[in-house]
Design a protein around this nucleic acid. Sequence first.
DNA 1: GCCAACGTTGGC
DNA 2: GCCAACGTTGGC
Length: 154
Amino acid sequence: MSAYWLMKSEPDAFSIDDLKSCPNKTDSWDGIRNYQARNFMRDMKKGDLVFFYHSNCKVPGIVGIMTVVSNEVYPDHTAFDPNSKYYDPKSTPEKVRWEMVDVKYKRKLKRCISLQELKEIPTLKDMRLLQKGNRLSIIPVSKKEWETILKLEG
DNA sequence: GCCAACGTTGGC
DNA sequence: GCCAACGTTGGC
C-alpha cells in the first residue's frame, strides 16, 4: 500500500528539470532540517508517489510527479560537511540527526497546477498544504486529495 | 523586498 | 520549563 506525499523545492535551487537531468533521473532529497519533515521521510516507503511542488517562485504550484526509490531513510551526509550550506555540527556519523530518501523523476504534469487554483477547490480545503502559515516542506497527501489534483490536470 | 507565521535557541 | 530573540520559509 503506497502512500502519497508532496515535497517542496525552490526552482531556483532545484527544479523538476534539475531532477530530470540527474543520472538515472534520481537524486537524494538532502537538506531537510526540520524534524516534522524528517519524520515524514521516515514514514516513506519505496514506491510512494510524490508531487513535486515549486515554492518561493513566480507561480508556486505542483509541477510534476516523482517516486520514492530508497527503501528507507539514510543519513544526510551534507550535514557532516563544513563546506555545505546544510552543515549541522549537531549531526554526526555517530549520532545522525538528519536523514534523507532518494526520489526519481516520473513525469511532469501537463501544466502547472498553481497554489491559487488548489485553493479554489472545495475538496482540497483541508489539505495541509493550504493551511494558513504552513511552511512544512514535506507534507502527506491523502488518496482523495491526490486523485482530485490529478483530475485537475485535464 | 516585505512580513506573517512558525521553529529553534539559550538565558534565566 | 518559560519565553524573548532570532532565523527561516514562502506567499505576495
